[in-house]
Amino acid sequence: MKLYLVPIIVLLFSLTGNTQTLKKMPLTKAERKMGIYQKFQQRQQLSYVQISLILYRDSTYVYRLRDCMTTLRSAGKWQQGKGKLILESSLKKESPVPVEVRYGASGKYIDSCDIAIVEDSDAAYLPIAHLLINNDSTECFPSVGKFNGSYSSINRVKVLFENGMVSSWVPVKAGTRKVSLRVLTDVPIREYEVMDKWVYQFKGKLLERQ
Rank of each mutant, 00 (worst) to 15 (best):
D186H: 14
V183M: 06
V183H: 03
V157N: 09
V187T: 13
V179E: 00
N155D: 10
T138A: 10
F147N: 13
P142C: 07
V166M: 10
G164F: 04
F147A: 14
E139K: 11
I154F: 01
A174H: 05
R156A: 15
T138P: 02
N155Y: 06
S143V: 08
K158P: 00
S150Q: 15
G164A: 05
P188V: 14
V183K: 04
A174F: 05
P142S: 06
V170P: 00
S167F: 03
V166N: 08
V159R: 07
R182Y: 05
K173T: 12
V144M: 11
G149Q: 01
D186I: 09
S143W: 04
W169V: 03
S180A: 10
Y151W: 07
V179W: 01
E139D: 14
R182N: 05
T138V: 12
N163L: 15
L181H: 06
N148G: 12
K158H: 02
K158S: 04
P188D: 13
S167Q: 02
T176L: 05
V166R: 14
V172L: 01
L184K: 08
L160D: 04
F161Q: 00
P188M: 15
G175M: 08
K178S: 05
S180Y: 10
V157P: 04
R156D: 02
S137W: 13
N163T: 14
N148Q: 14
S143G: 04
V187C: 09
V157L: 14
I154Y: 01
P188L: 12
N148R: 14
P171R: 10
N163W: 13
K178C: 02
G145Q: 01
K158I: 05
Y151F: 15
G145Y: 00
D186V: 10
G164W: 03
P142R: 10
F141Q: 08
V157Q: 10
K173C: 05
I154H: 00
S152K: 12
C140T: 09
A174P: 00
V172C: 01
F161Y: 01
P142D: 03
P142Y: 05
W169G: 01
F141W: 11
K146T: 11
S153W: 08
